[in-house]
């Protein structure tokens, strides 16, 4: 499945609205200016995700994973490489000790940040679709990209597509790249794209 240029633009704009809300929430939370760079959106088969992301995320991946359920259901993830995850934590937390590895407290910070971002995006989609989306408790995992993707591929053959949004957290003159991944069933994706088309039509 390939997004049309219009769909791509509309999705990018919608996600950017969620990103600016996320940036504002993180700025308030951390007391420093946090911005998320404008998103770049693409669509991939879930099974192809390792190939699509491996150059950006080699080695171990820190992922904040939240399952969402409702008329539109799927998996939402924020992916960071290990070094980026550490850097983001250190940028957001001003006080020492600066973390030299992802200890439990650092993982909590990442989980809270991921939770805010994922909920902002999913909340925005929920509003767009005029449906209620419920969320599971977010979990942080450290594993290889292959293992992560394997966990996303279920026996249900219909959950095969992943909307991949690349962005960067900009904090204190530094930028940490990350990916937002939403793995959706074909039915959910169809419904989402249909609503996106409608929304785009309403904007004209």
């Amino acid at each position: 499945m390939v997004l049309t240029e219009r769909q791509n633009d509309s999705l990018s704009e919608l996600i950017n609205i969620a990103f600016s809300r996320t940036g504002a929430a993180l700025s308030e939370l951390t007391g420093q200016r946090v911005l998320l760079s404008p998103p770049s959106v693409s669509m991939h088969r879930t099974a192809d995700l390792p190939r699509a992301l491996e150059t950006f995320i080699p080695g171990e991946v820190a992922s904040i994973h939240q399952v969402f359920a409702g008329p539109v259901a799927g998996d939402a993830l924020l992916l960071l490489n290990y070094a980026g995850a550490m850097e983001l934590t250190n940028l957001l937390v001003d006080e020492p000790p600066q973390t030299a590895y992802l200890d439990e407290s650092a993982r909590e910070v990442l989980t809270e940040v991921g939770n805010i971002l994922l909920n902002a995006c999913l909340g925005m989609f929920g509003n767009l679709l005029r449906v209620h989306v419920s969320f599971s408790v977010p979990r942080l995992h450290l594993e290889s990209l292959d293992a992560l993707v394997a966990s996303l591929i279920t026996d249900e053959d219909d959950r095969r597509w992943a909307l991949v949004v690349s962005t960067a957290f900009k904090v204190r003159d530094s930028a940490v790249s990350g990916f937002l991944v939403m793995a959706l069933s074909v039915a959910s994706l169809d419904r989402l794209l249909h609503e996106v088309d409608d929304w785009e039509g309403r904007q004209v």
Partner: peptide, 12 residues
């Protein structure tokens, strides 16, 4: 109350 889950990290 709008249906989201919220976490509070000690470090933040």
């Amino acid at each position: 109350l709008s249906g989201q889950v919220r976490l509070l990290a000690q470090r933040l």
